[in-house]
């Protein structure tokens, strides 16, 4: 399965998904287990000499992992189908409320037209079941260059850009917007500046 992480295709995914009941690898291979298995075999898993990840199904409650997140290097959230958007909120909770800083991976039915929203909600890795995964990713992230809402990413919102334009002299705020655009983690989509045009037309 092609994996996109940090804006690039990952040649070899180090993580192994271990089904409930299947044997754990003997070596230190990083493993992803279900929430149920994590709860049932916490001590065994903790005692392994390898990184740990847990996959949450769409109905699983992120709060159940709240106390464990320091011990987890990865949380995977499953998208069962295009229309099921629960994982977007789970991602926001993990990043916002529970301060999870590890890898947040989208798995399951990960569609091209949802990648931008996933990125905005705090995902940083995506299992994309298509041959042109990297092209799909790049295309999806360049569909839009301005945003209205604050989310889990660091894109400047329209309101923030307008606020910057209103206060300091034009040249300064332009420079700051450019700096912000350059600092953004996403592929460099051309940031639109509200200073570039008149306000009313």
């Amino acid at each position: 399965m092609p994996l996109i992480r940090d804006n690039d295709l990952v040649a070899q995914d180090p993580w192994v998904r271990v089904d409930d009941g299947a044997a754990l690898p003997e070596d230190g291979t990083p493993v992803i287990v279900s929430l149920g298995r994590w709860r049932a075999e916490r001590e065994t898993l903790d005692g392994r000499n390898g990184r740990l990840g847990v996959v949450l199904k769409a109905g699983d409650d992120a709060a159940e992992l709240a106390g464990d997140l320091e011990r987890l290097s990865l949380v995977a959230l499953e998208f069962p189908k295009f229309s099921d958007g629960r994982a977007f909120s789970t991602a926001r909770l993990l990043r916002g409320r529970y301060r999870f800083r590890g890898e947040l991976r989208a798995v399951g039915n990960v569609m091209r037209d949802q990648l931008l929203f996933m990125h905005r909600c705090g995902f940083d890795a995506y299992e994309v079941a298509r041959d042109d995964a990297l092209e799909a990713w790049t295309g999806a992230l360049s569909d839009f260059s301005a945003w209205y809402q604050t989310a889990a990413d660091d894109r400047r919102t329209a309101a923030q850009q307008r606020g910057e334009c209103a206060a300091p002299p034009l040249s300064q705020s332009r420079a700051r917007i450019r700096a912000n655009a350059a600092a953004a983690s996403a592929p460099p989509a051309p940031a639109v500046s509200c200073c570039a045009g008149d306000w009313a037309y």
């Binding site: 301005a146 307008r162 500046s193 509200c194 045009g197 306000w199």
Partner: peptide, 8 residues
């Protein structure tokens, strides 16, 4: 609309 609204 300003330029941001129009862009979106």
């Amino acid at each position: 609309y300003d330029v941001l609204d129009r862009t979106i």
